[in-house]
């Protein structure tokens, strides 16, 4: 096992989707040249607008898609290569996923015990009473009770279903959880419950979480470091506070300027910044790449932009 401080390393990951053939062939670069690393027991947030590739990134890491190119290593082991029995086993026992839609992601014909315990069964646990014991333990952990085990998903509210989804993800004791918009389908008053629960589990189990969401306030609150994505590119990676206090990439600035804050005073004086890639960048002469501008703060920029950003940082 590697003793690197990074548990997950993603290098130049590309995920293209194609449709049609011949002249009609269309390639969508959903994830294009994305590089980032996640530390052990860290929460790494991925934000961006719909279609920016944040969900695809998560799904490619857990191999719901086969990556077009690039390297992904988890605990030092390559997980982007050819899918073998061993790799599948390695992946499923180390990385789990929590989905956005708590209704669609639970099989309506299975009881909660079957849903949550399925992971154990797949791993060869045949003792039903042992499965039962662990399921109940897990349900208690996420704030549900033993009686819930024999019920079906439709009997639960959205927040409870999301708790079931979380219980299913963590019962196999994974090292990392990919949470794809875990709260955005929930009511405001219930979102906070689920965020608190995830926070507790993270502390208790030392989980590493890849948190994918579009709500920047939630991502900021929940994550140690944040990556901002735009049209398949990761444009900026930084610690939460750095990102919000000194956003460098014009898209990050535009995104931050667009979040409405629950504060009438700031809202009335809000100045929104537009991001127009053709206007804001001149990449005709120089190619952009991911550069570390200050410690822990990466921006996707060209050499001349880099100088500008360095100045901004120094004056900050």
């Amino acid at each position: 096992m590697a003793d690197s401080e990074y548990i997950l390393e993603v290098k130049n990951l590309c995920q293209y989707f194609t449709s049609g053939r011949g002249r009609k062939k269309l390639t969508v670069k959903a994830v294009d040249d994305v590089t980032f690393s996640v530390r052990r027991a860290e929460t790494f947030g991925l934000v961006g607008e719909s279609g920016c590739g944040k969900t695809t990134t998560g799904r490619t890491i857990i191999r719901l898609y086969n990556p077009t190119s690039g390297e992904v290593t988890f605990e030092g082991q390559d997980i982007a290569g050819k899918m073998t029995r061993n790799l599948r086993k390695f992946l499923t026992s180390n990385i789990a996923m929590i989905f956005q839609d708590p209704i669609e992601s639970l099989n309506p014909k299975m009881t909660i015990e079957e849903i949550v315990g399925e992971g154990l069964k797949v791993r060869g646990q045949n003792d039903r009473s042992e499965i039962r014991r662990q399921v109940v333990q897990m349900l208690n952990k996420v704030g549900l009770v033993e009686e819930h085990a024999t019920r079906y998903p439709h009997e639960f509210s959205g927040g409870q279903r999301q708790r079931i989804g979380i219980a299913r993800a963590i019962i196999t004791n994974p090292k990392m959880v990919i949470a794809d918009e875990p709260v955005s389908a929930l009511d405001v008053s219930v979102q906070a419950q689920v965020i608190n629960l995830l926070n507790d589990l993270k502390e208790e189990m030392g989980l590493t979480i890849l948190f994918i969401a579009h709500n920047l306030s939630v991502v900021k609150y929940f994550s140690d470091r944040i990556g901002v994505m735009y049209y398949g590119h990761l444009v900026e990676v930084a610690k939460g506070d750095d990102l919000y206090q000194k956003p460098l990439h014009p898209y990050t600035r535009a995104l931050l300027s667009a979040i409405p804050e629950p504060n009438p005073l700031t809202e009335r004086t809000r100045v929104r910044i537009d991001y127009v890639p053709e206007r804001d960048h001149d990449y005709s002469k120089e190619q952009p790449s991911m550069v570390e501008v200050e410690p822990e703060h990466f921006v996707y920029c060209s050499p001349s932009e880099l100088e500008k950003y360095r100045e901004i940082i120094q004056n900050a």
């Binding site: 608190n196 926070n199 900021k220 929940f222 629950p262």
Partner: peptide
């Protein structure tokens, strides 16, 4: 409602509303 969602400065544990509507 006001305190259950984090804003950009929130660091403390969220005041979740228990239960459901």
């Amino acid at each position: 409602l006001l305190s259950s969602m984090p804003d950009l400065q929130t660091k403390d544990r969220l005041n979740a509303i228990p239960g459901t509507p």
